[in-house]
């Protein structure tokens, strides 16, 4: 059971306060109709699911109810940091958007 830092509340809180939001940075295609079925299916269902560092979203359900980004290692449960969505995007891009 983790302790997560909510960048909006500025506090560390127990995992039970949060909801898991899945893989971060899967942008919705701007024009879904332009995608073929396979590309649409990829957006809908395909996930990186890495064993190692994972950029993911959590929402502070019983706190501010805001989504934020966490970089967590799925092999160890180590946490590298928490960011707001916008700041997290910058950190993610700075890494080259890789996992």
């Amino acid at each position: 059971m983790f302790v997560l830092f909510c960048p909006h509340c500025g506090e560390k809180r127990e995992e039970e306060e949060f909801g898991y939001g899945g893989e971060a940075f899967i942008p919705r295609p701007a024009t879904p109709e332009a995608l073929d079925d396979e590309a649409w299916g990829d957006y809908l269902f395909m996930r990186k699911n890495p064993k190692g560092w994972h950029w993911e979203m959590w929402s502070h359900n019983t706190g501010c109810r805001k989504f934020f980004v966490v970089k967590r290692n799925t092999a160890t449960n180590a946490i590298a940091g928490s960011w707001t969505l916008a700041e997290g995007r910058k950190a993610y891009d700075a890494e080259g958007g890789s996992t």
């Binding site: 395909m46 996930r47 699911n49 890495p50 064993k51």
Partner: peptide, 15 residues
Amino acid sequence: SVLAKMAGIRMPIES
């Protein structure tokens, strides 16, 4: 998912 990545395949899986 780890194996699929080696083959360049994406999987609709979460572990």
